[in-house]
Nucleic acid binder design. Structure first.
Length: 622
DNA sequence: AGCACGCCGACT
DNA sequence: GTCGGCGTGCTC
């Protein structure tokens, strides 16, 4: 009976997003396997194209005019069945294509890597690691956990990282792989350090775009062939893992876990889906939960494992000054004792916004009318269109401006003047310090850019708490809480923590460093208002007004208004919809179908550019 | 994406 | 009578 192979292409094009059948020539029938790269004749010209084998089966009566595949490019398997199933599920959920997800899941092939022998499974002694294992214990009775580790890492190995390594180790003993997904390179380095110090780095495989292409490909093949601890940033959510036993996601609320290109998936949703598909354990962990985690705990999808909060000295001031006299004295005394201090400032640069010295009106960008700030290099820039701004006169006649609030660069130079004997350093997202030497050191950092210090900070000041919480974004509160918790985690147990300018319930929660309850309260408030994550929010952005109008009309005529609510149109061409989890797949199908039909008949489409971009979970539109 | 097919205007 | 413009649609 003839052998037929189904082949897929790593292409984002929706027209090619299906499996194409090819006859397998008799001489290749014993060597062809699922997941291999093959060359096939494709298109009207019959040009050779590279594809991936997604099925091999005997077919009694194959369809007519079936072409034969030309050759097997490599005997190595580059895509696993689990990766394909996950890509299909995520493409469905996100209204994207399987091809674009496969493109991200399979690294570029390097012939020389294949000629070298693939790494042999290293030896590992089960007794070599002695670890805190309360996460391992909890996993014996629950397969889905939200884990909040001890907050204070004290500069040594992080409690979270050692618990992750312990959980991975427990799987290795049973011959199972693990997958750990981290938000950024700083956290990846901490996890890697724990792997090294606990003697497991040789059995771990990194999946990172920061590695060279050949290393990536070698690691990819190694993960398919050997049981190992797989880890990396968000793209590692799709990495292969032989005999997977556990998935661990660190800091799911961090925005770095959201893929910035189509189909805009999020590590959390991908990994929850993967855990279901592969029937493996999953741990979501963070110092402060996301509202999605609260939701999952409250619907009993995740069992909470919350570490005890260490007794610590927390001061919450009600003053809106960044540094009141007491806080100033605390910093001064800590520095005099020769100990390090961390001050978190909400915004980078010199000024977060500018006002006219005369009429006190907010200065705005001339072409997009959003606010102007002064970046770390001292240039006036527009916040949204990023263009440089020239000094111009205000409508009242005055040219000079005054900052509404000093940015971290300006605050740093203020601190240099205030503490001439201390070593004052600054770290922000663009210019980031990863770790600093201990001593009489004052670190001014923007949220998420705080460097580590050996032994931990003796004092942490969250100096811009009110402005972070007061931001008009939906997720301002939960994200602020996450950034504060991560900054505090760099302190040692006996450190003094200061929040400036907090009041009410939030102040009470922070006095006890009770992040979980603070986020839970935020979740319940949003629940009452019917806002995400109780519902989901999708957006469809068109490249132009004409196509946008056609979409809006069609969507209005097709939507069942009981289940999907039109929230409106933002930025001229983005349609925003609110919908419930239960109809997620149905809506994704509908939107994919509608946009496909509309873009096929679009009069304005340019080659290569997609007319519509669907984001099934847009966190930025409200 | 390519690439062919196809149906209208300008040319030997 | 046919050469070529690129709009439409298919590729196993």
């Amino acid at each position: 009976m003839p052998l037929v192979a189904k082949v897929r292409f790593s292409s984002p094009l929706p027209q090619l997003d299906k499996e194409f059948d090819y006859l397998v020539p008799i001489e290749l029938s014993s060597t062809i396997h699922f997941g291999q790269l093959v060359e096939v004749p494709f298109g009207s010209g019959g040009k050779a194209k590279t594809g991936i084998v997604c099925d091999v089966s005997t077919v009694e009566k194959p369809r007519e005019k079936l072409l034969s595949l030309s050759s097997i490019i490599s005997p190595f398997i580059v895509l696993t069945k689990e990766q394909l199933e996950l890509s299909k599920a995520v493409a469905h959920r996100q209204a994207g294509t399987v091809g674009e997800l496969i493109a991200g899941a399979v690294p570029k092939r390097f012939v020389r890597v294949e000629s070298k022998p693939v790494a042999i499974e290293p030896k590992m002694s089960a007794e070599s690691v002695i670890l805190p294992d309360y996460l391992v214990d909890a996993l014996k009775s629950n397969s889905r956990i939200y884990f909040q580790p001890r907050l204070f890492d004290g500069g040594a190995l992080s409690d979270w990282a050692t618990n992750f390594v312990a959980a991975c180790h427990a799987e290795l003993i049973q011959g199972k792989s693990s997958l750990v997904v981290l938000p950024d390179y700083a956290e990846l380095a901490k996890f890697e350090r724990a792997l090294t110090q606990l003697g497991l780095v040789d059995i771990a495989t990194r999946h990172s775009s920061a590695d060279t292409g050949s290393v990536r490909y070698a690691n990819h093949l190694r993960s398919i062939g050997s049981v190992s601890i797989n880890y990396g940033l968000r793209s590692a959510a799709f990495s292969p893992a032989k005999n997977l036993g556990i998935i661990i996601l660190w800091d799911d609320g961090d925005e770095s876990h959201i893929e910035q290109s189509s189909p805009y998936w999020n590590s959390r949703e991908v990994l929850l889906q993967r855990a279901e598909l592969e029937k493996v354990k999953i741990v979501l962990a963070s110092h402060s939960p996301s509202t999605e985690v609260i939701r999952l705990v409250e619907i009993n999808h995740l069992a909470p494992l919350i570490s005890e909060i260490d007794e610590s000295s927390v001061v919450v001031t009600e003053l809106t000054d960044r540094l009141d006299s007491q806080t100033f004295a605390l910093i001064s005394n800590t520095l005099k004792e020769g100990k390090p201090v961390l001050v978190q400032i909400a915004n980078a640069g010199w000024a977060s916004a500018l006002v006219c010295v005369g009429c006190k009106e907010l200065r705005t960008c001339s072409n997009c009318s959003s606010s102007i700030w002064v970046d770390p290099s001292g240039k006036m820039r527009c916040r949204s269109c990023k263009s440089n701004i020239e000094q111009t006169a205000c409508t009242c006649g005055k040219t000079s401006t005054r900052p509404t609030k000093l940015g971290a660069s300006a605050f740093t130079s203020q601190m240099v003047r205030s503490f001439p004997d201390a070593n004052v350093v600054h770290s922000n997202g663009e210019n980031r310090l990863l770790n600093v030497k201990s001593g009489p050191l004052l670190v001014v950092a923007t949220p998420g850019a705080e460097p580590e210090v050996e032994g931990g900070y003796a004092c942490v000041v969250l100096a811009d708490a009110p402005s972070m919480v007061g931001s008009p974004r939906l997720r301002a509160l939960e994200q602020s809480l996450g950034k504060w918790a991560n900054a505090i985690s760099l302190a040692n147990k006996s450190a003094s923590i200061v929040f400036t300018g907090l009041k009410g319930d939030l102040a009470e929660h922070m006095k006890k460093l009770c992040f979980y309850n603070a986020v839970a309260e935020d979740f319940h408030d949003r629940n009452d208002l019917g806002l995400p994550p109780v519902t989901r929010i999708a957006s469809i952005t068109s490249t132009n007004q004409t196509d946008h109008q056609r979409l809006v009309e069609l969507v209005r005529s097709k939507l069942d208004s009981d289940k999907v609510r039109e929230l409106g149109v933002v930025q001229e061409t983005t349609l925003v919809l609110d919908y419930s989890y239960s109809i997620g797949l149905e809506l994704a199908d509908l939107l994919k179908d509608l946009t496909l039909k509309l873009s096929a008949t679009s009069k304005t489409k340019k080659p290569g550019e997609r007319v519509y971009r669907i984001n099934m979970d847009d966190g930025k539109v409200i």
